[in-house]
Write a protein that binds this DNA or RNA. Structure first.
Lengths: 218, 218, 218, 218
DNA sequence: CATGAATGAGGCTTCATTCAT
DNA sequence: CATGAATGAAGCCTCATTCAT
């Protein structure tokens, strides 16, 4: 009779669940975990609160589900961007581009992972730590291989490699935020990646060849 | 009547206020802004709740005061560590050491600035953004001078410099967290700074000299 | 298509309804009226929730139906146990045995009647009161006849008979719980009935003959 | 200015807490544990809900506190009514009068103990079971001594004594309800006690002397 | 000023119950 | 009829915040 009826839209569970996760990611990103209200999430999802609880059980579970979904999406984006078999520098370059492209396309998801999840206690921090560890692992492998390709004479100490990987990931995270904030003149993901690549590549090469900076007076 | 009563120590407002901020920073760092309760803060500060409200007006104001105090302390630590007049590389090195030393010495304050403040809406995010901008400005100046000292032929484009500065700050932030988490085997602030310096310095030098990495097939 | 599907067994309404009542009695006994959930009842009954509502209309109606069914079963058990025409003491003895046998055999039903129904507001309390009144009536008749058989000189005052009946029924109810709780060494319904009968019989006889206890100093 | 101000009545905690317990007992008695709402209790207590939670922590704790208070009051009433040193029959008589007087004076408390507490899961049932056990213990002692005073030749078997005690307590509980329900013509606690005493006393005497009822045909 | 009494507002969660398919 | 989608209403609990003493 009336095509404009809005209320009881029947939809398969799968679809509804995705809408809920979308809404939850948006609200968690905007407000933070504690300040986000299930009311707002439900409303944004176009569903009633009981339905949200029926499908996702609790605020905690909902947040976990968001983290898991976004983390998997990000990892997949990075993994899918690199061509196993390419040389190390190329793989680093491609991985960075994948990372920046994904974070730019999903700013809310990135905000949840980067800003919210780490600040709200064990259950969530652990899941994000697992994601971050995967990123760090990928980068660690690239650094090691890069060092080898670059003719490294002696293997770099493990602690230093770990530190470098964290530095690189931190730089990337920071640049992701930087390029997202510059509305209007946002650099393309290609430019962002180039900036970081220029910065990092020769640093790695130098390290691989034992050339280090040292304070003059010390 | 009774000299053994310990609780209602009369103290000058200045001292009391500092105790309150100390307590607040600790609780905000541990629990997050929303989950922190004024009750817990007052108790940890050893003061009554009405007094907290008398001095600091509201939870929001209290959080802002925390952010401002910690941000100023951090900036001062970095500024105080560098010797104006020293060459650019030395100043970067000293600034990094100051940064890592301070964040390691004040983990709660750093957690509030880095993890909590940015995730809780405009009023706070703005204050933290101002802090970060100051750090970025310092680094930007160093990069520019470094490029000049290194014999840069043409000035680097502004966007790229900004990106580099953000990358460097992000790397530093990430390393601060990394070195704090490694309980037991936490690297000294000197080692952490060295790791980043090794990584960054030659990158900057290369850039200053126009040597850039470029994708092979592009 | 597939003969192995087990769930949607078509069954006559009568059977389904009994299953539902069985499930409801079990759940109400275990959880109480308010804490029992229609979900749990439907699941235990092996039926879908809409069907439960189709047959039994509402939680309230369902509970009422449980009470009615269990009350009728109990009354029937007691009535069926006594042999009209036997002497009064024998009928009391048989009635008690019937009562204890039935409550022991249907602990959930007894729990619903004794524990749950009386504590949940008028609609249910009335139905249980009706049941209890029937029990009291039976007992009242027995007491009166016992008094006559025992050679009662003057009729007992009505209030006293009513009180005695309530005392007897209360004692029986209490013993039903007592014998059900003593897992392992649960006395047979015969022993339980004997305990109460020994206790009650001579009391009634004495009363019938006007012998009463009186406080010494009063 | 206006003596009719009603809202923020300041009162010492002790007083408020008693008002809350009074209100809670009334509401729990009327509605049952689950159906009672903290809103209604708070309103009846003339306090806000947060204050109820501040003092009594949770619905569960509140219910427990009610049970404990009412149980102690009842036990005290019974204990205080009997004169240690009086003969057994006199003590039974006095105890019953104390019991009926107290339950008649505090029908809500009695309802909570007798009807509500036992039907709502372990935490509460245990507390009530402890109370009931105390009553049963008292009665058990009286029965044993009565048997001895009455010239009991051989000690009664333990199970039988336990059964008798439960029967007597059940009868008393039932009579308490009976006399409370008869509004208008409610028998005095003295009459109620007399009814039960007449009923029970000769039964006990007979048992003590080995006279038992036995089915004719068995 | 310290203390303790007090609360409005709001958040998470759960049910009994109903349609559409 | 069985299924699964859907919700209004209500309940427990907590917190930032304020007075009176």
């Amino acid at each position: 009779m009336d095509a404009t009826q809005t209320r009881p839209k029947r939809m398969p569970r799968e679809v509804r669940e995705r809408q809920m996760l979308d809404a939850a990611v948006a609200v968690f990103a905007r407000r933070g975990y504690r300040a986000a209200s299930m009311d707002e999430i439900a409303e944004l999802a176009g569903a009633s609160k009981p339905l949200v609880y029926l499908y996702l059980h609790s605020k905690e579970d909902l947040f976990s589900a968001c983290i898991r979904r976004e983390a998997e999406a990000l990892i997949s984006a990075v993994r899918g961007a690199v061509d196993r078999g390419a040389p190390a520098d190329r793989r680093l370059w491609d991985g960075l581009r994948g990372f920046f492209a994904h974070t730019a396309a999903h700013p809310d998801g990135w905000a949840v992972l980067h800003c919210q999840a780490r600040t709200h206690g064990e259950p969530f921090a652990l899941e994000v730590a697992a994601l971050r560890q995967q990123l760090v692992d990928v980068v660690t492998r690239l650094i090691t291989e890069t060092a080898e390709d670059g003719g490294c004479t002696a293997p770099l100490p493990e602690t230093e490699v770990s530190g470098l990987a964290h530095a690189l990931v931190g730089a990337a995270e920071s640049l992701a935020g930087w390029s997202n904030e510059r509305d209007g003149a946002a650099p393309s993901e290609r430019e962002t990646a180039a900036t970081l690549m220029n910065f990092a590549w020769s640093g790695l090469e130098n390290l691989a060849n034992g050339r280090r900076w040292a304070p003059v007076g010390a």
